[in-house]
Design a protein around this nucleic acid. Structure first.
Lengths: 165, 165
DNA sequence: CAGAACCTTCACATATTTGTGAAGTGTGTT
DNA sequence: AACACACTTCACAAATATGTGAAGGTTCTG
């Protein structure tokens, strides 16, 4: 492949990264974390330095700094440090990545459920609003169970699907 | 209860609505739709005119207009019109509300899955990034199945839980 | 121990989002 | 037909979020 071809593929990758990031943003993620996650997923390396990410995405190191902090906190990236080197390495744990992602969503869901439960106390179960909130809490609790269950079953399910074909 | 007591309860309700709306916003909802949904859920009426919502939330009718449009589009509010009256009524369908909510999430998830699948074509299955995207698509597809299943089972599950106690 | 490389923090300019008031549109009433 | 009411659309001001460059730490190298 020529150098020009490499550049074209690169530009195409970046265009795709923006597209992917847009979907993540619509799901509530901030722009820069979305870009970094999309880029780290779609590009070929399985570990990136902050400089890799900054250069690859054509953004400043400062922007990377904030983005990876979020992603690490959510468990989507792991920060590693090779002994005898000066740069952090950000690693995509592709085995557990999406289980972690949903794990983070479960925490959000927990806050959600707590907040709804608090509302039941504020409004009171004797009023229509309170009964609606109670129903909401029950549904969300059920959903949480089901989600947690699905995440738990995924590794086995993946293996099953892989051997099936 | 005195008039002053009513006012206090009202203020407390509004404070709670803001708190609830904040959680919805963190989940990606815009502020005004979040407030309207929280208010409609927690207050006692089961149908509201736009004027009710504007006055109840202390915001302009213009803000309500945009918010209810979103909520109606997502299926969280139904717009009704009593014959012989000039105002639209917004109704919370509390039976199906959260099934609808998740239904909307499923659409988001579908776009997500499509976008990831498109990325596999861009990157190619012969590269690590492509394989990660494929794995992502598989997980999301599985998750989608499980979510749809959970939503489908909720009505029966709710009845079962209600009769159990 | 000085220097360099890397990352983070901070202040700021820019872009985006938000909600308002005012004007506009449509519908039913008198 | 004219009016009144309810809702929507639009332009704008304020608030918020975003990403950059520069300055500041920290950790490894020579």
């Amino acid at each position: 492949m020529t150098v020009a071809g490499e550049d074209t593929a690169r530009r195409e990758l970046l265009r795709y990264v923006e597209r992917f990031a847009l979907v993540l943003r619509e799901a509530g993620m901030a722009p820069m974390p979305a870009r970094v996650l999309a880029y780290a997923l779609a590009d070929d390396a399985d570990r990136y330095t902050a400089a890799d990410l900054a250069e690859g995405l054509q953004v400043s190191p400062a922007a990377i700094s904030g983005a990876v902090r979020q992603l690490v906190q959510w468990g989507l990236l792991a920060r590693e440090r090779e002994p005898g080197t000066r740069s952090d390495l950000y690693v995509l744990d592709d085995q557990d990545l999406w289980s972690r992602f949903i794990g983070a969503e479960l925490s959000t869901l927990d806050r959600f459920i707590e907040t709804v439960a608090a509302g039941i106390d504020v409004v009171g179960l004797d009023r229509p609003g309170g009964r609606r909130l109670a129903e909401t809490r029950n549904f969300l609790a059920f959903l949480r169970e089901q989600l947690a269950d699905a995440v738990r079953r995924w590794p086995a399910e993946r293996d099953r699907r892989a051997t099936d074909r």
